[in-house]
Design a protein around this nucleic acid. Structure first.
Lengths: 138, 138
DNA sequence: CCTTACGTTTACGTAAACGTAAGGTCAGGG
DNA sequence: CCCTGACCTTACGTTTACGTAAACGTAAGG
């Protein structure tokens, strides 16, 4: 390894449409997330330059969306990942937020599991019914 | 048991505001669900009369909302519980719907679990940080 | 130099899920 | 008889999460 060489290479970057395609979003949506404070890409001239960090945040955003959270809710959630250098009062606040969120998720976990049980029972009933009618081919 | 007496007593009913209070909704919201076809209460004059069945459906509606489903999505979901007397093509359709929904829920299950892991790790970090500052009292 | 492609801002449009106000109905009580 | 309370309908307003159109900048290629 050459002396003085940066440990992380030039750091790969992405354009807005690259991100958009990767996550199946529109550029409009990504800019909207920026307006709402979920992303803060660097600028090169007027163009946005996204890094691996933005990629990771977008992954979290998509997960939050699948869980039905609002954009504002996702923003709060993302802030939790930024524990870095907070002061004690801010830390306490983060702790409470995290615990609130955990409680919600645990409820959601129960809901998902129960709904899966229900749906699989329905699936069984339907399959049964179709079998009795001899209509269970393709 | 008197001969000819109905097995189920007079069947308990609810007014719209009773339901609203029980589920922490407004009457407006419950009427809206009716507009969207999620509920179809009997009428007595102009007043809506809700039964135990409506109560059960509302429970499912609330669960769907906690899972982040849209009203239309919840309606489709509720229809799955009405497997009763469907014909074969309808049955096939229901089966597909149920299986699609199951796939979504299984993804959601993974998302919830992963998010819980993340958040609990964050919680641990924060607690640690606070402990090191000797600020872990209240 | 002109077009094409991709980016930008600004701003109005829209669907979903209700909130909220206005006004009407009807049973029970004083 | 009138009032109150709880219900009703109609309809416009509001927030969220983007879509979409207009108008412009800029770098690459023919």
């Amino acid at each position: 390894m050459p002396d003085g060489a940066p440990v992380t290479a030039v750091e790969e970057t992405y354009t807005i449409s690259q991100l958009a395609e990767a996550f199946e979003l529109t550029p409009r949506t990504i800019r909207y997330y920026e307006d709402e404070g979920l992303l803060a890409p660097r600028r090169e001239g007027q163009q946005r330059v996204y890094t691996h960090r933005d990629w990771a945040r977008l992954k979290l955003i998509m997960r939050g969306k699948r869980l039905g959270f609002t954009i504002a809710g996702i923003k709060d959630f993302l802030d939790l990942y930024e524990v870095g250098d907070a002061q004690v009062p801010q830390m306490r606040f983060l702790l409470n937020s995290a615990r609130d969120r955990i409680a919600i998720l645990e409820q959601q976990l129960r809901d998902v599991q129960q709904t899966l049980v229900d749906l699989k029972e329905i699936e069984g009933l339907v399959v049964d019914h179709l079998a009795r009618k001899g209509a269970l081919d393709a």
